[in-house]
């Protein structure tokens, strides 16, 4: 029923242009797989089976190749994430700077465990490995935005900002 009600996936005009331009930059079609998947995720928010078959078709790849590649990487969403996807770093520097406390706080405040999404679809929580921002630990990515030097108050403020649909800004990067 669901499939019948939905239109078939295809790149929109803008993304089709990007896709065509990207093809010119590589000697093989297969090399365009990761960029094409990013483009699909940008357009649709997550990657359905139908999208993976579509990408396979556009790049002359076997669907099973596309499936195995998608599963290998952590940043492709096979299910819709929350509107705000919270990616809390859990690796060593962030642990030394208190990320576990933040995780407990977030889980309690949002009522979800890592890997889950709030019922209203606003937040999903994921624990991730080193985000490459250890000098400003603890750190969390909210969608594409790095939120650094976190503490409980800052985390609460971020949640409030998201709830109010206000944009998050990265702190200016210091010289060190």
């Amino acid at each position: 029923m669901k499939a019948a009600a939905q239109e078939k996936f295809a790149f929109n005009k803008e993304n089709e242009e990007v896709f065509q331009e990207t093809l010119k930059k590589y000697p093989t079609k297969m090399a365009v797989l990761l960029p094409a998947l990013w483009l699909c995720q940008k357009q649709n928010g997550h990657l359905t089976d139908e999208i993976l078959e579509y990408v396979a078709g556009r790049l002359d790849l076997s669907p099973v190749h596309v499936y195995s590649v998608v599963e290998f990487y952590t940043m492709y969403h096979r299910r819709p994430p929350g509107k705000y996807h919270l990616q809390l770093c859990r690796t060593l520097s962030c642990t030394l700077c208190g990320c576990e406390e933040l995780r407990e706080h977030l889980a309690k405040r949002l009522g979800i465990a890592p890997g889950e999404k709030t019922r209203d679809g606003l937040f999903s929580l994921e624990e991730v490995e080193c985000l490459g921002s250890c000098g400003t630990a603890p750190v969390m990515r909210v969608n594409e935005v790095y939120c650094e030097n976190l503490n409980l108050e800052k985390v609460d403020k971020i949640i409030e900002m998201c709830k109010a649909d206000k944009p998050l800004e990265e702190e200016p990067m210091g010289a060190h």
């Binding site: 090399a31 797989l33 990761l34 990013w38 790849l61 590649v69 952590t74 492709y76």
Partner: peptide
């Protein structure tokens, strides 16, 4: 070329495989 979340793609041949459109 944007990666998609895999530490092992920092290993040079993992990076090459990934750039070619495969698992890293």
């Amino acid at each position: 070329h944007m990666g998609a979340g895999a530490y092992i793609c920092g290993e040079e041949t993992g990076l090459i495989e990934s750039l070619e459109g495969k698992k890293g």
